[in-house]
Each structure stands twice: as structure tokens, then as C-alpha cells.
Design a protein around this nucleic acid. Structure first.
Lengths: 340, 340
DNA sequence: ATGATAAGCCAAAACGTTTTGGCTGTCAAA
DNA sequence: TTTGACAGCCAAAACGTTTTGGCTTATCAT
């Protein structure tokens, strides 16, 4: 059956203690014994039982990701990239990444407590933060270790990784203004989400800075999907004073916006400019190619992964407030000249 | 600190045994005691330590997914849907789903043994099977419980869930032939993959059945990405005897194929018909909309999740060989008339 | 009164580690 | 010869459960 320390101990005529210490390179084990133990362990095909280790060490060596089914879809390319990179960091560190799906918003907060209480995980990863996030309030209150993907609008102190959406939006809007646009629309997900909040903030700020009026009815809310972008664009374009440029909260929405424009017989870029957020692979290959604000997804994943590992190990997180800078990628959907 | 059975026992003046048995509804506990224990546990905020339970029960109550970084991308919409649904089933059953990323193909097989040996997981999920899959050979040899997403070409016996790609391809090709196409191409991922193998098989079979010649140089291999589809289409269209229809192994590739066709100044549907596999959301909204073979991703995920749960619990899997039937979805990219 | 039955409880062992606080023997220095 | 240091080893406790195989005590039929 399965080989334990006891089996090795019996075989080499030493105590379990010594075997354990030999395998962990303690100094009070003679080189001969160490070698013997090593060899025997190898021979017998010993694999340590991490469950026993976890019990003794009072560590789960695992990180939990609780995914609201109504939250970021796994199929969101950006999120998938973040997740992959984070999973990679976590795996490399020898920890487990544990994914659970939760459906009802009222179940949103209990699973965190439960999973940590049950010692399934040492630390949790909160994604898709909202401006006033109950989950984070709860985790802070219960002193449960966690790292957030995104900020909140409270002045709570906790480790996070986020993208500077406001700045990204600012440079995007500035660019559109320079191209001559005066009526610019923004279609994003719910403004409850911190990311969207900052997008709107950057949006308004840029307009103000250039002395332009802010038309509140050009700031709309829609689903973060292609369909959502499509619908939003239809609404916007049917206004008497339709916008000459539409910014979408993410690239999938932007693709939907483009579809809507084309379906109305208009031309993207010349009639209505379009831009998105994210820079997913499709942005580069759509027709026309999509101007967008590139989000460094992989880097985000790496950083959040590393922070989670530190947090799970109970270490101080060296740099707990990370705000990554996005990059404006100009393509055909805003720049006619780029369209051959 | 954390509350254990011992704490409850002390509080209610019973033994740890009785407390444990009370919480598990054993018959040899008086109703009064049971109620008292329940109440006290609630009061003290008792949360069972699953690690201790796992050690005692010799069960990890967890399922492992080992994801080759060169394998299916999390951002593949189809795979993401399968994964979500499976994760949901697994979470519902109270088990953990544990994701690890592995990079080097030579590390492909060891992690399975390790994770199971270490008692991290009870059963593993193998995805992206190949015709002759070393991982499956290994798992069978070591008698490690697993469920495969996909078949192999050996006559090994193991639980799997797969899609009948051959049939899906057959109906797709038949449809194209009925439309008058005689030179049909297929661009898929490596034929090492069982899925692609069956796609090719269905492809050849359909042509034969209709008495058409099989042009081997119209069967090409490419990356399973939009880019891969683009490149493959370029190559195919530059042939002297270019195909009048191109089938891609998945929808993303198909979108790439459409781009390539359009970039050559040709029209999708009239000049060259295009079809894909999967029916991702984009297929419905692309211009033109994409004919495709719908893969029941969510159902796959549910089924594979349920099978994994049974497998992890050491139960017999009730229906271990599941072959789901895909459905042909005809849209504009093959049917001119549908294009308004 | 006697034995059988049942209800309710529990001590102890077990799961496989790691860690604590020793113990023994050897050898060099005093 | 004693003392102290050191190398090498180990018994036992601990982590928090579940399960086994009892043990009492009360009740009941004989």
C-alpha cells in the first residue's frame, strides 16, 4: 500500500523522528543515516502525505478563489489570462489553487469564512471588486488573509493589485478629443464595480480638462458582453445628438459596438470611432482593428499570485498596493489613416 | 482561537466522541444531548477542520485538474464553459477543485502521481486527450482514479466524456456538398489530438460517402487560434486549385479564416464558404455569422464533473462512456441566402 | 431474582506528520 | 578523573477528527 515514514524507519532501523529529520536535512542526522534514509525512501517510493503535514503544521498550503457565477466569466480572455498567470505562480510555490463557484449573491461572503475556517485554504483571492464591497469588509473584520484584484472606494487598508483605469481612460479620451471628437460616449458595466467607477472618473476628468461639456446621457450602463455593447450602441446611435465616438468598458463590448454601427450602415472609424479596454487578441484582428487600452493581464496575474503566496504563508507582503499602468494602443477603429 | 470538538465537549460535559456523533446524527445520542451539542457548536462558532477529517478518513475530497500551459487555453471559450460547469458540479458536491499548471511536456505525467500520492486529490481530470496518450497509460498503470475529457485510439477502458466530432463533421461536410461544394478544405490542430483525428475521419468519410475525391493537400494542420486559421486560409487560398469551402477545427480558427478571405478581397459565403466547430458566442455575431457545429460545452462540464465526483468518492461511475452529439448550426458563412 | 435487551455514553486508537525536549556515548580539555 | 561540549539519536506529544469496541444503567420479560 502507501509508504509512510514509519515504513522507512522500520527498514533503516531508525526512529520516525530521525527519518523525518533526515529528509528535511536537519543537522543532527549523520551523513550516513541521511543517505540511507534518502535511498530507502526513494526505493520504497515514499511520497509524503501532505494532509498529515497540513494538520500538524496548521497550514493548508492552499489559496481559494471564489468565483461568483454572475461575476467575471472564465471565458473572459482577460480574466483567463490573469488566472492562468496567477495559477502558475501559485503552483510554482507548491501551493494549491482551489476554485469554487458560488451562485447567489447572498452566498457571496459565507464561503470565504467557511473555507478558511475549515482550513481548506490559508488565504483567498477576491476578484471583481465593487466600490463598497461587502466581501472585503467581511474579510477585514474577520481578519481573514486575502488579496484583492481591484480597489474599493473606502479607505480600508488591504493588499490589492489593480489597473489604473482612470489614467488609461484619460489618455484614450484625450486622444479622441485631439482627433476632433466632441460628443464621446462611454458604455461600461455597472458603476458599482470599482473598475467602471474609475473608468467613468477618468472619462469625466479628461473632458473637463479639455473644457468640454459632460453629457451624462452619453454615459450608459450595459452588460459586459458583445451583446451588451451592441445594445448600448444601438441606443446611443438612435439619440438625436448621437455621439461620434463610443468607448466600451471592455473589448468584447467594443466588438459589439462595432457590429451595431456596421449594422446601421455606418462605417466604424469614419462615421463613429470605437475603442475598448483590454487588448484581447481579437482586438488586433477585427475589421477594423480595435483601438484599446491594453491591460497587462499576465503581469497582473503574476503579481497577484505572488502576493497570495506570501499572504498564505503568513509573510508580510513586500509591496501590497500595486497599481499597474495601462497602455493606449491606437488602431483603425479610431484612426482613419490607419485603415488601408 | 479556533473552536474544536474538544471545546464543545468540555462545554457540554460530554466526550469528544459523543459530540462528534451528535453532530453526525448517530442514533446512540439522546435527543437532548444532540440538541445541546448543536446549540453549543453554533454558539461557539464551530467549523470542522477538514484537514483533520481528511487525515482520518483517508480522503482528500478533492479533484485535480492539471493544465498543460501548451494545452487548452483557459481563454478558449468552449473550455472555459466546460470548466465552469464542472467546477460547479464539484463545488456543489462539497469537493474541492484544484488547478495546477504544468509547463514542460516531460512534466506532464509525474504531477498526477504526485498529487494523488501526496493525498492532495482523490481523482484527476485529464483534458485534451491525444490518440496515444501517455498520461492515460500512466494513470491506468498506476490505478489512479481519473476521468478523461476525450477518448484515445487504444482499446483501453476508462471513463470519458467526449463529443462525437466525426458525426458533427459528417453532417457539416454533407451540408456543404449539398450546397454544391466539391473542393472542401479542413484546417485543424495537430492530428495527434483525438478530437482532430475524429474530425478528419468524419471529413474523409463524408467525402467518400458522396463519391468525392479526397485531396490530402486540403487537409492541413495549424494552431488552434485565430492567427492559425488566418495562416492556414492564406496557404489554402494561394493553391492553384483553391478550395471553395474551408472548415476550421474550432470557431476561433474559423474567424481567422474569414479574416484571411476578406483580406484577399473575396467574399465569405459567396466566394468561399466557412464553417467552424464549437458555436461560441462570437459565431453568432460575426460578419457574416458563422456556420458551425455546436458543442454542448455546459453539458460536457456537468457530466464530467459528476463523473469526477463519483470517481473521487470511490463509487462506481454509473455511465462511464459518454459521447455527446453535436448539432449543426447553419448560418450565413455557408449559406448566401441567409445573408441579407 | 435473573438474564436479556436497549439506550446512552466514552476511552483509546488511528490517520501520518513535525517538533520538543530530552538521552547516550565519545572525546578533548581541565 | 572529572567536566563540558558535541554528535547522533529518539520517545512522546501534538495537530483534530472518526471509529471501534466496549462500559453503565435502566427496563423488561421470565
Amino acid at each position: 500500500m502507501t509508504v509512510t515514514l514509519k515504513d522507512i524507519a522500520r527498514q533503516v532501523n531508525r526512529s520516525v523522528t530521525t527519518v523525518s529529520r533526515a529528509l528535511h536535512d536537519y543537522a543532527d542526522v549523520s551523513p550516513e543515516t541521511r543517505a540511507l534514509v534518502r535511498r530507502t525512501a526513494e526505493q520504497l517510493g515514499y511520497v509524503p502525505n501532505v494532509v498529515a503535514r497540513r494538520l500538524q503544521k496548521q497550514r493548508a498550503d492552499a489559496i481559494g478563489l471564489i468565483l461568483p457565477s454572475y461575476g467575471p466569466r472564465l471565458s473572459d480572455p482577460l480574466f483567463a489570462d490573469i488566472l492562468s498567470a496567477a495559477a502558475d505562480e501559485i503552483t510554482r510555490a507548491g501551493l494549491d489553487l482551489l476554485i469554487s463557484i458560488v451562485h447567489r449573491p447572498e452566498d457571496e461572503v459565507a464561503p470565504y469564512y467557511q473555507r478558511v475556517g475549515e482550513r481548506r485554504v490559508d488565504s483567498v483571492w477576491v476578484v471583481h471588486t465593487r466600490c463598497h464591497d461587502r466581501r472585503i469588509a467581511y474579510l477585514l473584520e474577520r481578519r481573514i488573509p486575502f488579496v484583492a484584484g481591484g480597489r474599493v472606494l473606502e479607505d480600508w487598508v488591504f493588499p490589492y493589485v489593480d489597473v489604473d483605469y482612470a489614467r488609461g481612460m484619460h489618455s484614450l479620451v484625450s486622444h479622441l478629443i485631439q482627433l476632433g471628437h466632441r460628443r464621446i460616449a462611454f458604455a461600461g458595466e455597472s458603476a458599482e464595480l470599482t473598475a467602471v467607477h474609475y473608468q467613468r472618473e477618468g472619462f469625466r476628468h479628461a473632458l473637463q480638462e479639455h473644457g468640454l461639456a459632460i453629457y451624462e446621457d452619453l454615459i450608459v450602463e450595459s452588460n459586459p458582453t458583445q451583446r451588451g455593447g451592441y445594445d448600448a450602441a444601438q441606443t446611443l446611435l438612435s439619440r438625436r445628438d448621437a455621439p461620434t465616438a463610443i468607448i466600451a468598458g471592455n473589448d468584447m463590448m467594443a466588438l459589439g459596438v462595432m457590429s451595431a454601427i456596421q449594422d446601421q450602415g455606418l462605417e466604424v472609424g469614419s462615421d463613429v470611432a470605437v475603442a475598448g479596454f483590454g487588448d484581447i487578441p481579437l482586438a488586433e484582428t477585427s475589421h477594423p482593428t480595435l483601438t484599446t487600452v491594453r491591460v497587462p493581464a499576465q503581469q497582473m496575474g503574476r503579481v497577484v499570485g505572488q502576493m497570495l503566496v506570501m499572504s498564505a504563508r503568513g509573510q508580510e507582503i513586500s509591496n501590497p498596493y500595486v497599481l499597474l499602468q495601462p497602455e493606449l494602443i491606437i488602431r483603425q477603429s479610431t484612426d482613419l489613416d490607419l485603415w488601408l
